[in-house]
Structures are given as structure tokens and as C-alpha cells.
Design a protein around this nucleic acid. Structure first.
Lengths: 225, 225
DNA sequence: GAAAGTTATTTTTATTTTGCAACTAAGTTT
DNA sequence: AAACTTAGTTGCAAAATAAAAATAACTTTC
């Protein structure tokens, strides 16, 4: 049996943290920011902050606000990842972090570089404050898993892209090569992309630029048990 | 810009709620409990409660405690589902519910029936307090999704079961029939079950009883992009 | 107690999907 | 214009899946 005091719960810390992932050249990178307060002042960490009960309508809005206020970015793809909540993850006390992950094309953030913001390879990070390494690992795993059965990697590319670029994106995320014809067959069968009349001029044969058909959110591939 | 007060965050409510699912006859059922306090006193709702910062080491432990204290049950399968957090989901104020879902064989809970505990079909519920309908819908969807590519439904069966029973379980969850030989081939190929020498005596040919091989956690099926 | 009925389990066969390789197409560079 | 490179397509064998049929092991009925 517990008394009223215990039943009401002790005060806990409630934050959101955002794992912003992007793909540069051949590496998956995560956005980190030098902390502007204690604990871990000055150390690179995930952008995050307290939930602001009076201005955030829900946790997704809080994550959007963090992205906007801390990084000056708006991400079309923002999904709840997991909630890390324990007595030990934050030295200040029992704490819950509702974590989100966001995907952005490298082009969309190139302009945003600031002295406090840095991008590091998500697969090869130094030790970060709190349980941020674990949060990032979880985000990368989620991205990899979901890329095996969905069109998620499209969100790492700009609005217009070639099929070869899309295949390369999948290959970089998954870490292994894909068959060209099988890949194109699948994309074509699912029909969530549309070809535009534009082409990517390069050194060789120009490639047709594609885009996600409007009104197509996240496409899931068929799986059969 | 925000002042210190706002940056520290306003007090928010942090709870865990548990969606306990089980399969009876031909229906997926969810455990509900009549609330013993306001708000919504007396109404059936998901078992849940405040996180107890001084006794719960993490949110999973809090969910286990809820299951134990409120339902008198221990569930081998307990997974974080989603965190529902918003200004409007609880009349008392800004609230976050870290929700978990648990799976149990019907046999394991038959003995636990109490006057406050009831099981209702998860697909056909009355309106419940808070956003509990949405939480349950999310849990059912997660179970259905995950059943298409994992051995999750095993956890809805007792330790020993026949392959036909397992197939029926999949079919009830997924809502469509599966091919018998393909199903058995897949289970056999994955090799996470072992046959026992026991059989299920019935009206007709006895079926061999199987069990999950020890040291096998959750088996995921292969998916190819 | 043999025949019929029912469920379990395996085997066979047909159909679909995938993986690989070769081929054509369209540009640039030499 | 010949060689080179990347884009995109086509054909086919191998693998996986689905459907159907066959066989096995029991119980119940007549």
C-alpha cells in the first residue's frame, strides 16, 4: 500500500530529444549541439529540452519546437522513436526523454552550420552525455530496419532525385549492394514515385529525375509471413 | 527567449499504462479495470498509474509493477508501445503516458478474474477514459504488424502448443487464412520451435506439441527489399 | 471391427518473385 | 568516330510461395 503522496508520484524530468539524421557523401551523420547549460556544459549532445507545458500542445510539437529553436530547421519527416526513462539516465534525477528522429537531405541543412552545431558520423561517435549514444543507436537501427520494408530513405534525398541516387541511398543505409533491376522493379511496382521531365545532367547519360507522388506518405512494402 | 522558470518546465503528469492482450476462443481481448479514483471513477480503463520515482528503476519496471499490483500478473512479454503525451489527453493537465503492451496466454489469466477486472474484445470497445481507445488501437496494430514478420504470436499461447494452434493464432490476429504448408515450412526453416514427445489428444489424429526453444527471444523473419 | 469421418503432416506441382547477367541507350571524352 | 561511362531494359534461371493432392493417425458410427 502506498500513501497519497507516493501515489501522486514524485516530480520527474520530462524532456524531448531529437536525433536528426542526414546522409553526406557516404556517411550517415547525426546533428549534435554543444550544450549551453549544466550538466555536461559545452559537450556535444543531442538537441533537446524540457517539454513546455504551456506552449507545446503535444510531444511531437515539442520536438518540432526543439528542431526549430535549436537548429533552425523544419523537418518534413519526424517520428517518435522511443521513450528512455529511468532513475539513472540523468544526474539530476528520475528522467524521461521522449525521443524523436528526423530525416533531412544534406542540402537542406548545409546552410544552417553554426559554431555550436556539428555533424558526426552516427556509426562512430565519441562518448556522449546522458544515454545519447544509446538513443542514436536506436534511431540508426530504426532507420535501417524501416528501410528494408519502406520508402523511408526518400526523405534523405532532395525533392528531385534519380533512381540511381535512391538506390545508392538504400545501399549506404543498409550497408550492402542491391540489384539494379530488382530495385527498379520494386519501386516501379509500388508506384509511389513519378518521373519528371527533368534530367540530371552529368558526365554521361543523363538520368531522369523522380519525385514522390503528392499525397503519398510513407510507403510500406509488402511482407508475407 | 524564455525565462528560467519556463526553461525548467512546468509540472507534468507522468504515467505508465499497460495494454494486456490475450486471445480467447476467437477474439483478441484487452484487460480493463474499473478505476478506483477520479477522474473517471468506476469506469473501465487501462491499468496504469504514476511512475514511482523512488521505487521504479525505469519505465519498464513501472509497467511491470502496474501489471503485478493491479492485475496480479507477470508477463514474459512486455514491450514499450508508444508515448502519448499532450496537453489535452488528461483533464488534470499536461500528461505523458508511456504505454506498454503485454501478451499472455488465456490460460495464464483465467484464474485472475476479479470483480474490478474485465476483458473486452479489443476490436469492439465502448468509449474509454482519456485516450485509452487510441492506445489500445495502437497496441492492436503493433501486434498485427509485428505478427507479419515475427514469432510474436507464440506469446499468446501456453508453453506447449500444436502447429495448428499456432497457425490459428496467426490467422485470428491477422484476420485472414494462411497456407498450411507454407506456414509450416517457414516455422520449420526458422527453427525456433522444437517438437516434444507429447501430443495433444483430441477427437482425431493427435497433434505433436511444440515449444519455443530455450534462449530464443523474439524471432524476426527475413524481409528483402 | 471395418468403413467413414476428421484432423495432422508431408509431398507434389504450379505460380510468382527474385537474382544475375547481358543488352540497348545516351551522353562525354579521347 | 571510337572508346568509355552511366542509365535503363530485357531475358532467363533459381528460389520462394501458394495451391492442391496424398498420406497418416486417430475416433466414431454402423
Amino acid at each position: 500500500m502506498h500513501n497519497k503522496k507516493i501515489d501522486k508520484g514524485h516530480p520527474v524530468i520530462l524532456t524531448v530529444d531529437v536525433v536528426l539524421l542526414t546522409l553526406t557523401k557516404d556517411l550517415l551523420q547525426v546533428a549534435l549541439q554543444k550544450r549551453d547549460k549544466e550538466p555536461y556544459f559545452g559537450q556535444p549532445a543531442l538537441p533537446g529540452g524540457y517539454v513546455h507545458a504551456e506552449e507545446d500542445i503535444d510531444s511531437q510539437a515539442a520536438a518540432r519546437r526543439v528542431l526549430r529553436e535549436k537548429l533552425g530547421l523544419i523537418s518534413p519527416y519526424l517520428e517518435q522513436l522511443y521513450t528512455f526513462a529511468s532513475a539513472t539516465r540523468d544526474p539530476r534525477g528520475w528522467s524521461a526523454s521522449i525521443s524523436y528522429y528526423a530525416l533531412l537531405p544534406h542540402e537542406a541543412i548545409a546552410a544552417q552550420q553554426s559554431d555550436r552545431l556539428l555533424f558526426l558520423p552516427a556509426d562512430d561517435l565519441p562518448q556522449l552525455p546522458f544515454d545519447h549514444n544509446r538513443i542514436i543507436d536506436t534511431a540508426v537501427k530504426r532507420l535501417r530496419d524501416k528501410s528494408t520494408y519502406s520508402a523511408l530513405p526518400c526523405h534523405l534525398l532532395p525533392e528531385l532525385f534519380t533512381l540511381s541516387e535512391l538506390q545508392q541511398t538504400y545501399e549506404q543505409i543498409l550497408g550492402h549492394p542491391l540489384d539494379k533491376s530488382a530495385f527498379r522493379r520494386k519501386i516501379s511496382d509500388l508506384g509511389f514515385l513519378e518521373a519528371t521531365s527533368k534530367t540530371r545532367k552529368g558526365v554521361h547519360r543523363p538520368a531522369q529525375l523522380h519525385r514522390i507522388k503528392p499525397a503519398n506518405k510513407l510507403i510500406l512494402f509488402n511482407r508475407t509471413i
